[in-house]
């Protein structure tokens, strides 16, 4: 399935990911954690399909359990004692729950990053960084281009070496290793010489002169304005809620969290909407597409 959030403006995506990552790292209140974890898991499923199921079940669930068990083994604070370890240290309910909450934070952040990896492709990073750090962004572009190019060139060098019996697949292991080093050495020389020619070519075409423009495919559309407004509104509500302490929870010595009121319900809703913004956008686009198809 195509992800519609990926086609929105990179700035929107950047704001979204920075916000959800920071909030996921900071909020330890169970309602907030559950909302973020569910939204992140649903989004990664939508982005990666079957591969994500394996990632979640085989990677994230064991990690969650391991991290949750680790805390009570080292942390013995808390008033509700469940049982004693053989070493005589108590395992408390509070430290167990705290371990679960911390593990939840960790796993949520990893899942968010896995979504970010799919959505924020390198061209978007280059575009966003190009505005504030042009030279570093150029460095990034060049490196991203050079890596596949070097891999390709290494294959060519290796093919040429094979003709004279000096490839990594020929000879005993010592000869093979030496041939590998030769190929690497040829590649390095080629890369440096080639790079200097690129640099001269850049200079000849006026790199470093003022009035430089950069190419990008990204346009700011009406949908992006709407998304930005929605994001800012939700961020405002969650930010105010966080300032009012709705997101806090105390674990030690005993668990204490703010009462659930209308105000906290509003903040929960806003946070839930914020985290599932890409999912909602996809649902909306899907609905609009269907109604367009059925109307015509």
């Amino acid at each position: 399935m195509r992800d519609h959030f990926s086609s929105s403006h990179p700035l929107i995506q950047a704001i979204y990911f920075v916000a959800v990552l920071i909030f996921s790292m900071l909020f330890m209140h169970p309602v907030f954690q559950l909302l973020a974890l569910t939204a992140a898991a649903a989004y990664v499923l939508l982005l990666k399909g079957r591969r994500a199921v394996r990632f979640l079940l085989l990677g994230m669930v064991p990690l969650l359990l391991l991290a949750a068990v680790l805390n009570p083994a080292f942390n013995h604070a808390g008033v509700t004692i469940l049982f004693y370890l053989r070493s005589g240290n108590p395992v408390t309910l509070e430290s167990l729950l705290y371990g679960v909450a911390a593990a939840c934070t960790f796993v949520t952040v990893i899942i968010w990053f896995s979504c970010l990896h799919v959505v924020m492709t390198s061209d978007k990073w280059v575009y966003l960084l190009g505005r504030i750090l042009p030279a570093l962004s150029l460095l990034l572009t060049m490196s991203l281009r050079f890596v596949p190019r070097y891999v390709e060139q290494a294959k060519r060098i290796s093919a040429a070496q094979r003709c004279i019996g000096r490839d990594v697949t020929q000879g005993n292991w010592l000869v093979r290793a030496r041939n590998g080093m030769t190929i690497l050495s040829i590649l390095t020389t080629w890369a440096l010489e080639n790079a200097m020619e690129t640099a001269d070519s850049m200079k000849a075409r006026g790199y470093g002169l003022p009035g430089r423009t950069s190419f990008s495919l990204f346009r700011w559309g009406t949908r992006d304005s709407r998304l930005l407004l929605t994001l800012l509104l939700l961020l405002g509500i969650v930010g105010l809620g966080a300032a009012a302490g709705e997101n806090t929870i105390r674990f030690f010595p005993s668990i204490l969290y703010p009462d659930i009121t209308w105000r906290s319900m509003t903040v929960y809703t806003a946070y839930g909407l914020l985290c599932s913004l890409p999912l909602l956008l996809n649902g909306w686009e899907e609905w609009r597409w269907r109604s367009t198809v059925s109307a015509s």
Binding site: L138, L139, F146, V147
Partner: peptide, 14 residues
């Protein structure tokens, strides 16, 4: 300068 940028990019890419 362009050359300096390129040298850094080459080493990082290698």
């Amino acid at each position: 300068q362009a050359r300096e940028l390129i040298a850094i990019a080459v080493m990082a890419s290698l």
